[in-house]
């Protein structure tokens, strides 16, 4: 398949760069690398970038730069990059599976006719890629989950999902960074603080980061929660 790289105008203040149109870790990694390259270049007039599954939105100030100049620069940077490795973090996320912290774990196991232990084993054995952050500040969409535990979303979303909840939404898994409504199947919760506006960047996870889940006990959960709350 041909690798796609196409710049289209998006209003008079943005360029949408479309990569190959699919949810794929290689495509998504290319998006994050390109986003990092653009940040490093510090091109005058570029305000910020929004990486997503297979695209990068680049916001600019039309007073300082115009569409064709940006596209010219982007095409040049694209041919130059590729071999560059960007620095993304690998983060271990402690998680308490099941019980009141993961009210849908039981459903996920039943849905696939496997045991709860099996679901935990599958979920905690993979390495995930932060495809993008959105929906709410800090909500991380993670790619790389085994299809063995892919589960449809709730038919009607919960009005409130606590911060730290880890859910499954179809083929993806994700972490709710702040309390919000939500329709994903909640299988556990992390005691880590995922969103704090006093920090810069304000989120623990960044697009392009790698994530692993580490099962913990309720006692460990409470100890870790206390650590940052005090």
């Amino acid at each position: 398949m041909r690798k796609q790289f196409e710049c289209v105008p998006y209003g008079d203040t943005a360029v949408l760069v479309n990569f190959t149109n699919k949810i794929d870790p290689k495509v998504n990694s290319a998006v994050h690398s390109f986003s990092a390259v653009i940040s490093n270049e510090k091109i005058e007039g570029i305000v910020e970038t929004i990486p997503a599954y297979s695209s990068l939105t680049i916001i600019y100030d039309p007073k300082l730069i115009d569409f064709s100049t940006i596209v010219e620069k982007l095409n040049k940077l694209h041919t130059q990059c590729g071999k560059q490795t960007s620095h993304f973090s690998s983060i271990k996320i402690p998680i308490l599976y099941g019980g009141e912290y993961g009210p849908d774990l039981h459903f996920v196991a039943k849905y696939h006719h496997i045991s709860i232990e099996e679901v935990i084993k599958i979920h905690a054995s993979a390495e995930y890629l932060v495809y993008m952050i959105g929906f709410t500040p800090g909500f991380a969409y993670l790619g790389g989950m085994s299809e063995k535990i892919a589960t449809p979303r709730l038919e009607s979303p919960r009005k409130s999902v606590p911060a730290g909840s880890v859910g499954i939404g179809d083929k993806q898994t994700g972490i709710y960074s702040i309390e919000s409504p939500g329709g994903w199947r909640i299988i556990g919760r992390t005691p880590l603080e995922l969103f704090n506006t006093k920090k810069d960047p304000p989120t623990l996870l960044k697009p392009g980061d790698k994530v692993r889940f580490v099962p913990i006990s309720k006692k460990e959960y409470e100890q870790q929660l206390k650590k940052w709350q005090n």
Partner: peptide
């Protein structure tokens, strides 16, 4: 579509 970035006015 596959979710992509949003801007004011879209």
């Amino acid at each position: 579509i596959l979710s992509n970035g949003m801007i004011i006015g879209a």
